[in-house]
Design a protein around this nucleic acid. Sequence first.
RNA 1: GGAGGGGUGGCAGAGUGGUCGAAUGCACCGGUCUUGAAAACCGGCGUCCCUUCACGGGGACCGCGGGUUCGAAUCCCGCCCCCUCCGCCA
Length: 431
Amino acid sequence: MLSRDLLRSEDDTLASRLGLRGIAAGLLESWQSFDRERRSILGEVEQLKQRRNELSKQIGALKREGSDAEAVMAEVGELKAGIAGLEERLASTETELTDLEMAFPNLAHASVPAGADEAANRVERTVGEPRAFDFEPQAHWDLGPALGILDFERGAKVAGARFTAYFGSGARLERALISFMLDLHTAENGYIEVQPPFIVNTDALIGTGQLPKFEEDLFKLSGHEYYLIPTAEVPVTNLHRGEILEEERLPLKYVAHTPCFRAEAGSYGKDVRGLIRQHQFQKVELVHLTTPETSYEALEELTGNAEGVLQRLELPYRVVTLSTGDMGFSAAKTYDIEVWLPGQNAYREISSCSNCEAFQARRAGLRYRPAGGGKPRLLHTLNGSGLAAGRTLVAILENYQNADGSVSIPEPLRPYMGGADSIEVPVVGAG
RNA sequence: GGAGGGGUGGCAGAGUGGUCGAAUGCACCGGUCUUGAAAACCGGCGUCCCUUCACGGGGACCGCGGGUUCGAAUCCCGCCCCCUCCGCCA
């Protein structure tokens, strides 16, 4: 949510900044007219209430001294209908106002490139050299089944399209990746490990911005007001909802490993093969709650923490700043980290790191008390994958594949793999 | 799932229809005293909204949402959460 002060402002660049995020100018104007109406009704109703409160006190005083209060009670009685009518109008105006403001996306930070889609994204840096293969590298959807570690057919059998069963070293490799990432972020980057609920209520989803606008992306539990989490960002960012934190405790840096569930509505025909786009995947998520003054430093730090995983695994990648049109709803600035996938001959997103500034904090009531005392202020929230486990496994399979179809295991993961240095193609039907 | 108890300010804990945004204690902030500190004493100390250049004024909030009433923390209805015991269970 944007602040009402901002939405009210005379600033004529506001409409165009919203326009960059895909919001028609008329929506701002209608918000402003509902806001004017609300304040005018509020003024009237509060005046009547003031009168009512005064008279009610008089009645109390009169009755206590045994006097007749009939006349005063009659006067209050006349106020009642007026108050009720105004409050009804006030409530419906409030509803219009909040429905509108819930639909406004965050404004982009000044450093974000303007543009309609990913064509306007800006590459910030490219790290690592894609490996030169002396054979034709395979895609993971060929490598995985051949190694007997990924089974798309059986995943589809027990659930449906976009679900995968992992076997043997594949299952273990993903678990190794998760453990490796959690250990790195907690031991070296100062994160507190959190295991949040994997099911959340509507308030949490409103807090981070998935609701009310993007319900079709979520899996909802039948018969309950519960949803499977699309990302750990939702439960973790909402952990301190409605709280006022002491500034001394900041920044709060959380890392959480969770499964993520996404309906992927409207993505039919996109990435239909392999692990890239699944209804269920695992992710290690990084979340920062910090002060407005430090949130952009925190974005660099968080992004660097995510890059650190790729660097340790020696996977080539690049960092891209998303354009105003490509960013998510709640973000003010987003860096996507894209890993090189030889099997696709392309860089593909493996992490998305965003500073949401006060946008989510305002929705979720995340505040802090400044160190010197004084009024509570809104926090800034940040989140980013550090990293998506399934896609990292894809990157390892494709980048570390050998000519014989085996896959080498990157050094840092070997302790988590029982010391194994490779996953070998099984000898089928031998003997 | 069954039975019972409970949700009040940072914490503890009063308050069962009016003078209650809410006693009291602790914590916290300022002051007096003191060489300094502690103790003692004095004062301050919630959040949101509207309005005002400002000082200030007003409204709302005692888990959430409705209702009764001139007036609700207090009465009624629904819901949520927590605790205890029983059952079931990873």
